[in-house]
Design a protein around this nucleic acid. Structure first.
Lengths: 254, 254
DNA sequence: ATAGTTTTATCATTATGTGGAAAAATCAAT
DNA sequence: ATTGATTTTTCCACATAATGATAAAACTAT
């Protein structure tokens, strides 16, 4: 986890590092010892920072098991952040329209470290299994069309770095070999959007188009998940065009 | 905003204060000047802290307008916190079951400062207008059954404090006089659950039951929102019993 | 251009956070 | 229960890291 070295203030940097470690760890939380080992901080310092964060409810502590996990305030901040003029609220209308037009499950994924995270989603008429599950779910970058569509438009160098880092997790996740990811990246670059037809979850298909920021770097993606059985000639292309149109609207509003 | 005075480390306390101020402010964000005025911090200090937080993406900065708002990482943390063994995931099944049994819009509200926040929700068969809107929406404590059900089971002292603090906002929000809130609190304490039938939003009714923590303090509530037209003898009582049953399950799992 | 406001950068000073070390608390095994 | 190992918590002298007065730079408005 490249814990962003924001040359700022030591204490804050350390607190941010701990938050990251806890967020990236098991949802059951982490013990002081674990965090000391992971962060390399002095035990006393670590303890003090953690407890201050608990005091502010940025972290919560399971008193019985003495484990630290993300606190109640994170719900609030997360929810508030989503209401602000960020990606989620900018995509809200698009998700609703796309769901309405097609009746399919629609989602907004974002890149975070080496993962792709589901930020928002609208369930379709028929319930389909998705890779990420509901809001907040994540998959390693490289798995699934939402994730591939972002990966495909990064620098070659960054792609290599991420795929190398994720190789094990991808294999672990769904027996995905890295060279398959490379093939999908190539195809996606050519087409402009990513497609998966029953390769990851039998019977389930997905299409996704990346959202680029002002600098042209992919930060998120919009996509559909639906049943392979629904596929008819031109359907995938049609879905991709719908996504593209919404993203043009979103990107224009930068 | 009683910015929790966790006798910890100065810098962290200040950072937490700034996060709170930004989270509670407009979703458009706050300028340095505004934050300096609100926090009482020295300009340079404030600036330094804010920029460190931006570096860690806990805050984001609109470079054009120079305004600070909650950052991308808050999405992530919020989403992760929701997946952890916290309230949201513990209530997930309950919300789903309640929605399935009744077909009504179901929601989980939590207390945060003097507000009641929507943490999660399942939309019902027919779309109904709700006070809080979608996930993340908030109302002043005292407005709506979800909020009243929590307020009703707090200490007298705390109730008084909160209602006094919220008086203006309640009046502003939906012309709610404080004495009406007191009446509702009394009724709710007697019944064990809160009810509103078309008083806040014409034609819309709500029932809510509080969730207490180990110490017996209300931390959240589970509720239904539905059309007044649906009401038949015994329906409200029935809904309350369904909520009660789910909450018994949730509280037992502490 | 000019004045007023807001945001950044600088830097000597010291209040603040640090970490070693030791005390409590907790756990594991007999 | 008793002991010993591990983990968490408290304490405090010390030095470093954060502070805030001040000044420079960047905007805004006139």
């Amino acid at each position: 986890m490249p814990a962003s070295s924001a040359g700022g203030s030591q204490l804050l940097d350390r607190a941010a590092l701990l938050l990251d470690l806890i967020a990236d760890g098991s949802p059951e939380g982490a013990s002081l010892k674990e965090l000391v080992d992971l962060s390399g901080l002095n035990t006393a310092t670590c303890h003090r920072i953690l407890n201050t964060l608990v005091g502010h409810r940025l972290l919560a502590r399971d008193d019985k098991r003495k484990r630290y996990r993300l606190g109640a305030k994170m719900f609030i901040y997360g929810a508030r952040a989503a209401r602000g003029p960020g990606l989620i609220s900018r995509c809200e209308m698009s998700l609703a329209r796309l769901r309405k037009k097609t009746g399919e499950t629609t989602h907004l994924m974002a890149r975070y470290n080496h993962d792709s995270i589901c930020l928002d989603r609208r369930d379709g008429e028929c319930v389909v299994q998705t890779l990420t599950g509901s809001i907040g779910g994540s998959v390693p970058l490289g798995a699934g069309p939402g994730s591939i569509s972002m990966l495909a438009f990064l620098d070659r160098e960054e792609q290599e770095f991420i795929l190398r880092a994720n190789a094990d997790r991808l294999a672990d996740f769904r027996d995905l070999p890295v060279d398959k990811a490379w093939r999908l990246i190539e195809e996606t670059r050519g087409r402009g959007y990513a497609v998966d037809i029953g390769e990851l979850i039998p019977g389930i298909a997905g299409v996704a188009v990346p959202i680029l920021n002002e600098a042209g770097v992919p930060v998120a993606s919009l996509g559909f998940t639906f049943l392979c059985a629904k596929i008819a000639p031109g359907l995938v292309e049609n879905y991709a065009a719908l996504l593209r149109a919404e993203i043009d609207l979103i990107e224009r509003r930068n």
